[in-house]
Simulated assay, not measured.
Amino acid sequence: MLTLFLIGIGCGDPGQLTRAAVQAINAADLILIPRKGMAKSDLADLRRTICADVLTNQATRIAEFDLPVREAGEADYHKGVDDWHDAVAAAWSRTIASQLGDDGKVALLIWGDPSLYDSSLRIARRLDPLPDIDVVPGITSIQALCAAHALPLNDIGEPFLVTTGRRLREGGWPQGVDTVVVMLDGSTAFQSLDPAGLHIWWGAYLGMPDQIVMSGVLAEIGPSIVAARQDARERHGWIMDSYILKRRP
């Protein structure tokens, strides 16, 4: 029987690993490290660093593989994602079969937590044969962002909404909430909103040495965030950021 550990590793700081995560890493027969190209080599490097720091089981092997790239600008967004998930599942299956076969424990180190804007659980259920899936939760980027700003996410007795930059840009401010968490925003969708009464708390590379955080009245600090984001992306070749918007009377 194949067991697949999906281990949340937080947002870049090895200190965010839980004791359960360390135990699961050392319980694995095989650890998979995906490579996302030179532009995102930092992500593979962090996984290698975590393994070097906490892996004490000398019998555990590490295998790296190239992660398929999702086509940009697909006419059918959902079909494009579905096809990409199939391709990733096939890459996982090939690597596991060549390194471990169909019996043993394999682990993937998941950025943040497998439950939030991560495809690993959906991809895992496409594997054939279907493994026993064991999820080890990790610190999400939302938690890391709130911690970086010392910000309570929800107002007292009030809801909040987690959405994507694409949904915010296409649908505008969601009804019924005054707090919105925005993730997976490749084009600073907050620029599409009327900034009146809005405050923003933004962060990039959360938990990593290059962490950047900025906050303030959206109308005033928005252009500075756009400029800082563009500069950081050009310097690093990639960026991973998120932000919180709150509407004030």
Rank of each mutant, 00 (worst) to 15 (best):
V88E: 00
P68I: 08
Q23E: 14
E220N: 13
T56C: 12
W92N: 00
V106W: 02
D53F: 00
I110K: 01
L218N: 00
R94D: 13
R169W: 10
T49K: 12
L4E: 00
A228G: 05
D178I: 07
G171H: 13
H149F: 08
D29L: 08
Q143E: 15
A204Y: 04
T49R: 14
V181Y: 01
M214L: 14
S215F: 06
L6K: 06
T18S: 15
I50R: 02
D53R: 08
A91R: 04
A107E: 06
A219F: 10
M183F: 12
I212V: 14
K79Y: 11
H149M: 04
Q16L: 15
L198W: 03
L67T: 05
I139Y: 05
G157M: 08
L153V: 13
L32P: 03
D86P: 02
D113V: 05
G12T: 02
Q23I: 07
M1L: 13
L17F: 12
D42G: 07
T95P: 02
G15T: 05
A124H: 00
F5D: 00
A59W: 13
G112N: 11
F160Y: 15
K105G: 01
L130D: 07
V213Y: 01
D241G: 03
E74W: 13
E220H: 09
S119T: 06
M38D: 10
I123Q: 01
R122C: 05
A90M: 08
S93G: 03
L116S: 09
Q58R: 15
K79D: 14
I33Y: 00
L67F: 14
R229Q: 03
D86R: 12
G186C: 09
M208D: 08
I133C: 03
D45R: 11
L4S: 01
Q58G: 12
I200L: 10
L4Q: 01
R247P: 08
T18I: 09
M38W: 09
I96R: 01
G138K: 04
L168S: 00
Q211D: 08
V226E: 03
S192H: 06
E170W: 03
L30V: 13
G112V: 06
D13W: 10
D13I: 14
A89W: 04
G197I: 09
S115H: 10
D194M: 12
L6D: 03
R169D: 12
A147R: 05
G171V: 00
A228E: 04
T49M: 11
R48M: 08
G216H: 03
R94E: 14
D155F: 10
D42F: 10
V106Q: 05
P249E: 10
D231V: 09
E74C: 15
D82Y: 10
R247H: 14
S93L: 09
D132I: 11
Q211T: 15
G176P: 06
D66L: 07
W111K: 04
H85L: 11
L2E: 05
E158V: 14
R48I: 09
G10V: 05
H199P: 01
C146V: 13
R19T: 14
D76W: 12
D118I: 09
A72F: 10
V177W: 06
R125W: 05
E64S: 11
N57T: 09
